[in-house]
Design a protein around this nucleic acid. Structure first.
Length: 356
DNA sequence: AAGTCGTGGAT
DNA sequence: TATCCAAGACT
């Protein structure tokens, strides 16, 4: 199947995307490999996340923690705050753990084998293969969502996902060349992102157009086939945004495990599947003149959250597990919590931190 | 091994 | 507005 990878690499040499974590063309001509730290950091950020969203975070992390030892030595709170907004916060917790493991147990040097990489927190089948191929030039089989789409189309695989995964892996392994496996993996992903797109693929520009079974026999957009998804349930709850006259806001930290683990939030009730009326202020963390600021809706992967937002201006008082904070813009607040706070205090994130 | 875990952009 | 989905991992 060498002609497939040859055609693809030829296309890649001409049409590859320039991304901050890739080595320049000059570097590759000299045979230099990408920095494993750079590859790892970008791959973790790119899990289920768009290139567009990752770019700024990648630059910020690399500028602040230039080497894996720097990240290992950082405060976890700083790392979480820097990650805030990118989503899937377990990635940030595992990123920190992984950096510490590499610094402490591997002398700051990344393992260069599939098995060594997979043993690290946050690195699964895909990411281990991607780092091994891109940073260490190993011919591992790299399968992500892009590859699944390209391969199911190329071979017109009628098995629906996720049952088709072994089949897809097997075909991808046959395609993967011994030379330039890292470029091959990135080329497959670039192809999936720019040509072999989910909707309206640009088949006329595809290096595989002469060999693609989906294009020859059928409608490429039909692939990959997928099992139908379950409906997304609605959960409801309330958030209580309390502020002092000088603009401090009451925040607490969510438990380490689970949804939005380790991130800050204003006090909220539990989020139940209850379908009855809106949640009242009787569940507030303390008695005050709570006014109803409105409702916000936030869509997570597996449920939709409708939060009733309450607002009170009050004197600063002690609340168990709570902190009265200013300068919200620099806190590790998930987007849904920023949305809730903004509903109660529209300019909350334009304020500067107070002294003291 | 199916469910859990965010967010924002495209269609 | 509704749905999809983007370089998945973990339990």
């Amino acid at each position: 199947m060498d002609h497939f990878s040859y055609d693809l690499l030829t296309w890649y040499d001409r049409h590859h995307r320039d991304l901050p974590w890739r080595t320049g063309p000059g570097d590759r001509l000299k045979g230099e490999r990408a920095d494993p730290y750079h590859v790892w950091l970008s791959e973790i950020m790119l899990q289920q996340t768009t290139v567009q969203a990752v770019k700024a975070y990648y630059e910020k992390f690399l500028a602040r923690w230039p080497r894996v030892e720097d990240l290992a030595a950082a405060e976890t709170d700083e790392v979480m705050a820097a990650w805030a907004g990118l989503g899937y916060y377990a990635r940030a917790r595992n990123l920190k753990k992984c950096a510490e493991t590499i610094a402490r147990e591997h002398g700051g040097v990344f393992p260069d084998t599939l098995e060594g990489l997979k043993a690290l927190p946050g690195i699964g089948d895909y990411t281990a293969a991607a780092i091994a191929a891109i940073a260490f030039d190993r011919p591992e089989t790299v399968v992500d969502g892009n590859v699944e789409r390209v391969v199911t189309r190329l071979f017109a695989i009628e098995t629906p996902l996720p049952a088709a995964k072994p089949e897809i892996r097997s075909w991808t392994a046959k395609l993967t060349p011994r030379e330039r496996p890292g470029d091959f993996a990135q080329a497959m992903m670039d192809l999936g992102a720019t040509i072999c797109t989910p909707k309206r693929p640009a088949c006329a520009l595809c290096p595989f157009r002469a060999h693609c079974l989906a294009l020859a026999n059928d409608d490429p957009e039909r692939f990959p086939l997928k099992m139908p998804k379950a409906a997304r349930p609605v959960r409801r709850g309330a958030a209580f945004v309390a502020e002092t006259p000088d603009g401090r806001v009451l925040l607490r930290t969510r438990p380490e495990a689970g949804l939005l683990g380790g991130m800050a939030e204003p006090p909220t009730t539990g989020w139940t599947a209850r379908q009855d009326g809106e949640t009242g202020s009787d569940a507030a963390p303390f008695a005050a003149e709570w006014s109803h600021a409105g409702e916000i809706t936030h869509v997570f992967t597996h449920f939709e959250l409708r939060l009733s937002v309450w607002h009170a201006v009050t004197s600063e008082r002690p609340v168990a597990g709570g902190r009265w904070e200013s300068g919200l813009g620099e806190k590790a607040l998930p987007s849904v919590m920023k949305k809730a706070i903004s509903k109660a205090i529209p300019d909350a994130f334009k304020r500067r931190p107070h002294d003291r």
